[in-house]
Amino acid sequence: MLKALLTAALVALVAADSIPDFVAPGTCAKVANQDNFDLHRYAGRWYQVQIIDIPYQPYTRCIHSDYDYDSVNGFRVTTAGFSPNNEYIRLQGKIYPTKDFPPAHMLVDFPSAFAAPYEVIETDYDSYSCVYSCIGTDNYKSEFGFVFSRTPQNSASAISRCASVFRRNGVDFSSFSAVPHTSDCVYRA
């Protein structure tokens, strides 16, 4: 049922008057998910340090998220950062496992976007997390990727590790962009 809903959302986007920039020809990569994923260890603060640009994400720099886990609802996530106009924006949503997939393959649900997969390909829980999100149908895909780090500074090892992980899983890492984390960032999600 979840796959049918996600496919219907993508079909509606493709059938609209114009195809959004984030929908492209192709198929989603068949990524491997983290084995023995520990939801409790994944909780806490994560910083987006590299992403495949998301046009409906309102922030472009200093992006950070707090993942608060409970076994009934999954993660309550607060994500914040600065917009291109230097406005501090904070959004709340959920990321949660479903019965249809293993724990590392969750669903992300934020008010400003349609529900989408959130697949943790690999994480060590302490320094990096490589996350893939893609919905595909009829040779079109809406593909996003994230490199998360537990710190905004010294994230080079997280980026290097995830670049290797994404490439190994068939995801083009050259489509990722750096998320600026400068000295004027404020982290108060």
Rank of each mutant, 00 (worst) to 15 (best):
Y42K: 10
G44Q: 07
G44C: 06
R45L: 09
R45G: 13
R45H: 11
Q48P: 07
Q48F: 09
Q48S: 12
V49C: 08
I51L: 04
I52F: 12
D53Q: 13
I54Y: 08
I54D: 11
I54G: 12
Y56L: 14
Y56M: 10
Q57S: 14
P58R: 08
Y59K: 05
T60Q: 15
R61F: 03
C62Q: 06
I63P: 02
Y67D: 01
Y67K: 05
Y69N: 06
V72I: 07
V72T: 15
G74W: 00
F75T: 01
V77Q: 07
T78Q: 08
T78Y: 02
G81I: 03
G81A: 04
P84H: 04
N85R: 10
E87Q: 10
Y88Q: 05
I89W: 07
R90G: 06
Q92A: 15
Q92I: 11
G93H: 12
G93E: 09
K94H: 15
P97C: 03
K99T: 13
F101T: 04
P102V: 03
A104K: 00
A104F: 00
A104T: 01
H105T: 13
M106G: 06
V108T: 10
V108H: 07
D109R: 12
D109V: 00
F110G: 09
P111L: 15
S112D: 10
F114G: 12
A116R: 15
Y118R: 02
Y118V: 08
T123V: 08
T123C: 01
T123W: 00
D124T: 09
D126F: 01
S127A: 03
Y128W: 01
S129Y: 00
